[in-house]
């Protein structure tokens, strides 16, 4: 749920990066953090295990600029991807304004992608949201790896409704900002649509 503060003239929105374990959600946020001007970002917080797997969430606040005198602030969150952290994933989806699904392009991870996407749909539905209605973009990550599925195969399996999709390599940054811009734009457009 976006939060508009008329006093501070700020629009605050929450974007969640979702996807199977080790698909690159945290890497997306790390790249954005590294490449963003210091005055446009806050501190990045990672609640991770000792082996650097996300335990609860990563959090990155970003200022994207002004629209008609309103500062736009986006709060980026990742969820823990491992299957058994489902209770935590549900909590992070609360009040979400837009979702990025980070798919792992490797053929061996196709099943994990589908399982995670189904899990996203279920968890959103529990909060009263429909994946078909909220701002949603798809990222096919790890395009630089060997043994990857083609974009056509990924699209058929994960993106039948043809939401905006991006090929990415989060480690080197390819596609990372395109994905973020796309979801941010969808969120703002949705906000405008919701105005009476």
């Amino acid at each position: 749920m976006s939060f508009i503060n008329l006093m501070a003239r700020e629009i605050n929105c929450k974007i969640v990066y979702y996807g199977p374990g080790l698909c690159g959600k945290t890497t997306n946020l790390q790249y954005i953090y590294e490449r963003t001007n210091p005055d446009a970002k806050g501190k990045m917080i990672s609640l991770a295990t000792e082996t650097d797997r996300t335990l609860f969430f990563d959090f990155l606040p970003l200022a994207l600029g002004e629209i008609r005198g309103f500062k736009t602030r986006f709060y980026l969150y990742t969820v823990p991807g491992q299957v058994f952290y489902d209770a935590s994933r549900k909590l992070i989806l609360k009040g979400v304004d837009g979702v990025v699904f980070v798919a792992d392009s490797q053929i061996a991870r196709m099943e994990a992608n589908q399982e995670s996407l189904e899990n996203l749909r279920t968890n959103l539905a529990e909060q009263g949201y429909s994946l078909d209605k909220i701002p949603f973009v798809m990222q096919y990550n790890k395009r630089d790896m060997p043994d990857i599925a083609t974009v056509e195969e990924l699209r058929e399996a994960l993106n039948p409704t043809m939401v905006p999709e991006f090929e990415a390599c989060a480690r080197t940054g390819v596609g990372v900002f395109d994905t973020l811009k796309s979801v941010a734009k969808l969120v703002l457009t949705e906000l405008k649509k919701g105005s009476p």
């Binding site: 749920m1 976006s2 939060f3 508009i4 503060n5 008329l6 006093m7 304004d97 949201y129 429909s130 209605k133 909220i134 949705e190 906000l191 649509k193 919701g194």
Partner: peptide, 15 residues
């Protein structure tokens, strides 16, 4: 609207 927004107005903010 799927996702109702929260708006903070000057009056309530001051309170």
């Amino acid at each position: 609207m799927v996702n109702p927004q929260m708006v903070m107005y000057e009056e309530e903010f001051n309170q």
